[in-house]
Computed example of a mutant assay.
Amino acid sequence: MKTCLIVDDSRVVRKVASRIVRDLGFVVSEAAEGAEALQMCRQAMPDAVILDWNMPVMNGIDFVKALRREEGGKSPRVVFCSIENDAEHIQEALRSGADEFIMKPFDADILESKFAEVGLI
């Protein structure tokens, strides 16, 4: 079964995303910020990461850059999920190592279509 790590400092966003991703057949884990998520990836690399931009301790950009340097860190499909949705932010996310970008708020259809686009489903 595929795994997905949801990284967001909002508990509500994590819970909503978790429900959607579980319905898509993934085993889900959650982290409240990037440093915690990086430690979790070092323990078990997920197939997918849904990643917020603005978080305390380690933000999404720093996390994805660090993830891509880890052993096996190039394989997870990273989908940024942020309110930072101007073209400059989207390009920065993709340049930093993200595979896709969705804007908050999102719904099950949007998340499912992005997962399909990056080959997760």
Rank of each mutant, 00 (worst) to 15 (best):
V57N: 07
V16F: 04
L67Y: 04
G72N: 01
I121A: 13
M45Y: 03
N85T: 15
Q43G: 13
S82C: 06
L24A: 01
E117P: 13
S82Y: 00
V16L: 05
D107A: 09
E92D: 12
D86K: 13
R77K: 15
I20A: 03
E84S: 13
L111M: 10
A87N: 15
G60K: 01
D52Y: 04
D62V: 07
E30K: 07
V28L: 10
D8F: 02
D62W: 09
A17N: 00
F80E: 07
D8Y: 04
R11V: 10
C4W: 07
D109P: 07
A93W: 11
Q39G: 10
S96N: 11
S75W: 03
P56L: 10
Q39C: 05
L94P: 12
C41T: 04
P46C: 02
A44W: 13
G73A: 07
M45S: 02
S113P: 12
D52H: 01
Q91G: 13
V13P: 00
S10A: 00
K15V: 07
V57L: 03
K74R: 05
L120S: 08
R95Q: 15
V27L: 12
G73W: 04
G119T: 14
L67I: 05
E30A: 09
I90R: 12
A98Q: 12
P76Y: 00
G73F: 03
V7I: 09
R14G: 01
A32N: 09
S29Y: 08
A17D: 00
D9K: 00
V7T: 06
L24I: 00
F63S: 00
V13T: 06
E36T: 12
K2W: 02
K104S: 06
R14K: 05
L24G: 01
A32M: 07
Q43V: 11
L51D: 02
I50K: 07
F115A: 14
P46L: 03
E92L: 14
V49F: 03
G34W: 01
C41K: 04
E36Y: 08
G25W: 09
L5V: 08
F80M: 15
I90T: 12
G60I: 00
K74T: 09
E84P: 11
